[in-house]
């Protein structure tokens, strides 16, 4: 029970990070971006490439920061991967989403995002192969925190949780304390009014993609660190991430953060009741349950 709770929170941290980016994009551009989870894949693989490059250049960078399996080279690679993923998101928007947006309804966007997801996933599969990859082959053993009740925790996961909390705090400060944050929120509330007030809409959209992409890259790398990488990891993560964003309420960053934890914990606890074969349905059941009670999610506002 305690173990399931802890597992849920630790697994949920990655979902939270993914969901924050998704919820911002969904709120701002008003469409369900099924390609968002592919940004996690882009980030994770970009970090893999640069991690290998840095280790090749300087072997000491490859040393593990005990007790983590995280290496110095991966930390540096992470920064580059965030930039690459943010840039990819902007480019995808520039070449696909923006044009579709200008042409038609927001629902064409949903389908366009399906198409984009398919392309990204298979291109990555072509380049890197379909097999799983790992940042570090070594197995990080869990630490026994308590014997009774039994509680095991992996250092990597604690790091991921802590890093996630720090990122959320920074994001919170940016959004609530800076002019940039005000501008972003104004655009999200009412794009036309914001534009009238001199906020450059296009630049704000670019900014949203950069932030969303950067957070997605972090989520992808953290997922790779605590699990593994594969070209289809986006496909595997898309439903839980959507669940987290919707549970929290679209547009609510705190909601998304909490939503990730809820989905993680629920998936973990669900196996205490359900046979494990049913676990892919759990995120969906959570979505449905929350929407029935609160049609706009836990922290979402009613929106036209």
């Amino acid at each position: 029970m305690i173990q399931s709770l802890a597992d849920g929170i630790l697994v949920g941290a990655v979902l939270s990070l993914g969901a924050i980016g998704l919820t911002m994009v969904m709120h701002m551009l008003r469409f369900a971006n099924f390609a968002h989870a592919e940004l996690l894949t882009i980030g994770a693989y970009a970090a893999l490439v640069f991690d290998r490059v840095f280790q090749g250049v300087n072997a000491t960078l490859g040393a593990k920061l005990a007790p983590l399996t995280l290496t110095g080279s991966l930390v540096v690679a992470m920064a580059i991967a965030m930039a690459i993923t943010g840039a990819s998101a902007v480019l995808i928007d520039r070449f696909v989403f923006r044009r579709v947006r200008e042409k038609g309804g927001e629902l064409s966007m949903v389908f366009a995002s399906f198409g984009v997801a398919l392309i990204v996933r298979n291109v990555i599969g072509l380049i890197f192969g379909l097999h799983t990859e790992l940042y570090s082959k070594g197995i990080a053993f869990a630490v026994v925190v308590s014997r009774d009740p039994l509680l095991l925790i992996k250092p990597d996961q604690v790091f991921v949780l802590a890093a996630t909390l720090v990122i959320m705090l920074v994001l919170h400060l940016v959004l609530s304390r800076t002019t940039l944050g005000y501008a972003l929120r104004a655009v999200a509330e009412n794009p036309s009014l914001a534009q009238v007030n001199g906020i450059p809409l296009k630049r704000m959209i670019v900014l949203i993609w950069v932030i969303g992409g950067g957070l997605a890259a972090t989520a992808g790398i953290f997922y790779g660190l605590t699990n593994h990488l594969s070209p289809v990891m986006g496909r595997d993560l898309v439903l839980p991430i959507f669940a987290a964003a919707i549970v929290g309420g679209i547009g609510s960053i705190y909601g998304a953060a909490l939503g990730g934890m809820i989905v993680g914990i629920a998936s973990s606890l669900a196996l205490l009741i359900l046979p494990s074969g049913y676990s892919p349905s759990v995120p969906f059941l959570i979505i449905l349950a929350v929407l029935l009670v609160r049609p706009n999610g836990l922290f979402g506002e009613v929106r036209a």
Binding site: A32, L239, F242, I246, P280, P283, F284, I287, L288, L291
Partner: peptide, 24 residues
Amino acid sequence: LTLKLRHDYLAIATFGVAVAFENV
């Protein structure tokens, strides 16, 4: 259960229905 949802929620909810259906 779902038709009163916003369009994009509807897409996700029905997508989830299909996942759950396959699962069962």
